[in-house]
Amino acid sequence: MPSLYQAIILDHSKHPRNCGELAHANHHGEAKNPTCGDSLSMDVITENGLIADIRFTGQGCAISQASASLLTESVKDKPIETVLTLTPDDILALLGVELSPNRLKCALLSLETLKLALTKNDKNLS
């Protein structure tokens, strides 16, 4: 069985990209994974239907943090509509590994948080 901890996951969990908060974010989302006790919080700035900037903070296992790092990297400058259609398979493709059902929740927390931010938490509307 190949290790779950391939170079890309280790790299992104040790050196997460887009880590931090955005003072002028117009979207914000938070989610938790009770299995690992992982938590993620995302700030997003959208402009003209595009993801102009995105940052996340969080704590938890390497899979959840690497997944958030990879996802935020991949959605920057992408249309919101496209991002909302991302599927679990897209996240697995980013991570480049197969996951057991338990660890799948860790990997998908980033997507859940991002979709939550984009659909429910428009700061300008609240």
Binding site: L4, Y5, C36, G60, C61, C106
Partner: peptide, 9 residues
Amino acid sequence: IHPHDIAQV
């Protein structure tokens, strides 16, 4: 190091 990562490795 998260305990789940320890157990997984």
